[in-house]
């Protein structure tokens, strides 16, 4: 019952987005501001995390397969595919749920508590469209780009790790990078990127937009935003994998 109530609120918030903007240029400006805060400001963390995840994957895979007669260049192939299929979209979006999601929830929660949302509403602004819609479009645009960046840097991280740890020469890793390449995997990555971006931005906005209470409730909303989007991301990750593979 409670779940149905929340789900209903979530859906009606999403439907509220679809209304003609009062002023296109103001919406565009807000959209740009969000793209900056979601996209540009997340580049450092996404980059650092992807580099190290790629490095760890390479080192640990080398360790896992050392007892097998697996050709060395396989490491390059495994790192490439793991990054593209799983690590780049899923890991990046889980990190972004922690950073961007909690940020959206606390920003909207703060606006709700201090009556800024009411103030916009009184002026006649469609707040789901202006506040949530712009965040959603910004997320759908920037997060897939961040994921591509993460995939490239993850592969680079794997390369640096194997070369620095003297596991194999650079040429062998590169040979693995070219082995068994399946363009479909890139499409898979992009599908995941869009789905996850949608989930994390709408779930976070939902929790922030509907805050009631004070500062403590803002904190709770941002925690809920992180928890629920992480769960939904992994759930849909599995569904996508099950359906498309």
């Amino acid at each position: 019952m409670n779940f149905l109530h929340h789900f209903g609120t979530y859906v009606s918030l999403l439907l509220g987005i679809f209304s003609k903007p009062e002023n296109w240029s103001m919406y565009w400006k807000e959209n740009m501001r969000q793209m900056n805060s979601i996209g540009i400001e997340s580049i450092p963390i996404v980059a650092v995390v992807a580099l190290f995840i790629g490095a760890v994957t390479a080192v640990q895979f080398a360790y896992q397969v050392q007892d097998f007669a697996v050709p060395m260049y396989y490491i390059g192939y495994i790192v490439r595919d793991t990054m593209i299929i799983e690590m780049a979209p899923t890991m990046t979006c889980m990190i972004l749920a922690g950073k961007v999601g909690s940020n959206m929830a606390s920003e909207l929660g703060n606006m709700r508590i201090t009556e800024q949302i009411d103030a916009l509403e009184i002026m006649g602004v469609n707040t789901p469209g202006y506040l949530v819609g712009t965040k959603l479009t910004a997320a759908l645009f920037t997060i897939p780009l961040l994921i591509i960046l993460a995939a490239l840097l993850g592969i680079l991280g794997g390369l640096l790790a194997v070369v620095l740890s003297n596991i194999m020469p650079i040429g062998v890793y590169e040979r693995g990078l070219h082995a068994f390449f399946e363009p479909f995997n890139v499409r898979l990555m992009m599908i995941k990127g869009f789905v996850f971006a949608f989930i994390l931005s709408t779930v976070a906005c939902f929790h922030g937009y509907n805050v009631k209470g004070g500062a403590i409730q803002i904190g709770e909303a941002s925690t809920k935003a992180v928890v629920h989007s992480n769960i939904l991301i992994l759930l849909s990750d599995y569904i996508i994998a099950e359906v498309l593979l």
Partner: peptide, 22 residues
């Protein structure tokens, strides 16, 4: 104020995530 609490909690997530993978 309340806004800075939100920023602090975002920073907490970002820095601990980075340190965890490092």
């Amino acid at each position: 104020g309340a806004l800075d609490i939100g920023k602090a909690s975002t920073r907490a997530v970002v820095f601990s995530s980075i340190l965890v993978v490092l």
